[in-house]
Amino acid sequence: MNKAKTNWPVQILITLGSLLILFPLYLTITIALKDPQQMAQSIIAWPKHLHWENFSQAIQMTNFFQAFKNSAIITIFTVILTLLTNSLVAYSVARNMHKKFYKFLYYYLVSAMFIPFPIIMLPIVKQTSAWGMDNIVGLIFLYAVYGLSFNIFVYVGYIKSIPKELEEAAMIDGAGTWKIFWKVIFPLLTPINATVGILTALWAWNDFMLPLILLSDKNDATLPLVQYVFQGQFSTNYNLAFSSYLMALAPMIILYLFLQKWIISGVTKGAVK
């Protein structure tokens, strides 16, 4: 790049655009910190007196920490399970694509991406509850299974680019297939693991539909589900509602502030490949 001067028109447009992104978040924070009287004066202005008690009230009302714990457990275990199993399947498929059976598996799994969820929605509700899976464990399981379609697609593309010589060398050293995968291949998958891990984490953390239809016990509720469930009880108190929204959004935002570069490059690496 030549050392050209700042492109001011673009700078201004980009800055204005970013305000559009930040405004709803600013609004969420201010409303969360006001009381109804302050709202009546001005919704947008920053409050002079901050009502932190909105948060403690919302925590109590929605049982925030329970929901946070549920969301965290679901997200963390979904990511771990997805990374370990999906990469394994992809490796096996990628290395055997010349065989009819594996080729069939590849297309079977990937084409499932085109099956719209609503066709599964009604039966899966019955199935999971009949098998006692209408809980957190069932959710983790389903996320790992449903992610397979897309992840196989991403992983196989990447694994194909890893030269087979590496494995052959390890095989000559007497390493078995499993050992080769864990010691040679899996470490090489790190960039793509990051991609899959981030996308899976975002999905599991933010998903609303599966928890809505699947979970029965309200003690299992995730953060988005809790926001929905309390919608009726929030109805006349926006300050309480927004402090609850803010708390539900905050963990991801905080994580993002620290890991921003890593998350963005993780997402893009998978795509550029």
Binding site: G17, L223, P224, Q227, Y245, A248, L249, I253, I263
Partner: peptide
């Protein structure tokens, strides 16, 4: 900033 909305819950 521009990537931020992607990490937020659609419902919220």
């Amino acid at each position: 900033v521009y990537f931020l909305p992607n990490i937020l819950s659609v419902l919220i």
